[in-house]
Amino acid sequence: MSPPLLTQPPRPAVRLTNVTKTFGAHTAVRQLSLSVPTGCTYGFIGPNGSGKTTTIRTILHIFHPDSGEVEVLGERSTRAANDRIGYLPEERGLYKKMTVHRVLAYYAALKGMKRADAAAEIQKWLAKMGLSEWADKKVEALSKGMAQKIQFIAAVIARPELLILDEPFSGLDPVNLEVIRAAILELRAAGTTVIFSTHDMAMAETMCDFIFMIYRGNKVLDGTLADIQRSYGEDTVRVNCTGGADLLRNLPGVELVRDLGQSQELRHPDPQALLRELAARTTVRHFEVCQPSLHDIFIRIAKPDSQEMQVPKTTGGGS
């Protein structure tokens, strides 16, 4: 997927400036600045509890920042733009006793949509998701996958300019995942700015124009995937050799050996020296020097034993 034209858009869809949000003694987000260009897909990644959801809630003005400024769709520090934002929270819920149509009509009405427009939109989306015959059924009669699709429709029903999806693919089977993914891409193609948080690094790599990573309340990555990977250099090696991961772990200078089964991925400051070392010790069937994957970068920053904050690798684009 190619990024949209980024010749300094006149006004970003979302701009956070030095935003800090604390809960008691815990700082959830610290001095965060972020700019989400209009019409792009922005991926929020980070370990659990790192501040993703707080950032999203701050953008939605569900949380008020302790300091800093929040500008969304041109509106500064007010909820005025909320009717133009669609939101799918991480933890989802629908009124079980209401019919599918009534739930969707209610959410559309809360966004200020007229009844007739909402009815047309509900019909369109239910048809698109293959749920037309469920319109008059109660939500409690739906399967989990169906309910998740209804939840997604609730987020997009009011034709939002900005769509924020918190873990939109979690719990979906591959078929429904593809349906939702296609719908997101369609919305983006129609000009909707999409922000979504995910733990699926492969999904973030393939769908997002920009990646933003937050760790312990601090921004640690922000930019296009290519820029982020470039900033980490070509120190990643993919190897297939006799001896496998056990042999590799015992070689000097080798870091972060990731066993992929048929091959192993690792980091080494001097790949040429590593190749010489390996060739002297074993049979090398495959040796490839590449840029680190997003998954690898994520692990490097947020590995469990990491005691110190990594140096932020901000590469422009977003902020």
């Binding site: 939605l60 909820r79 934002i85 819920g93 629908l94 809360l110 966004k111 609730a154």
Partner: peptide, 16 residues
Amino acid sequence: EEKMAKISEVLLASVS
């Protein structure tokens, strides 16, 4: 119930 069913957050994205 709305809180336990995680409906509140959806509503709060639309209303104060």
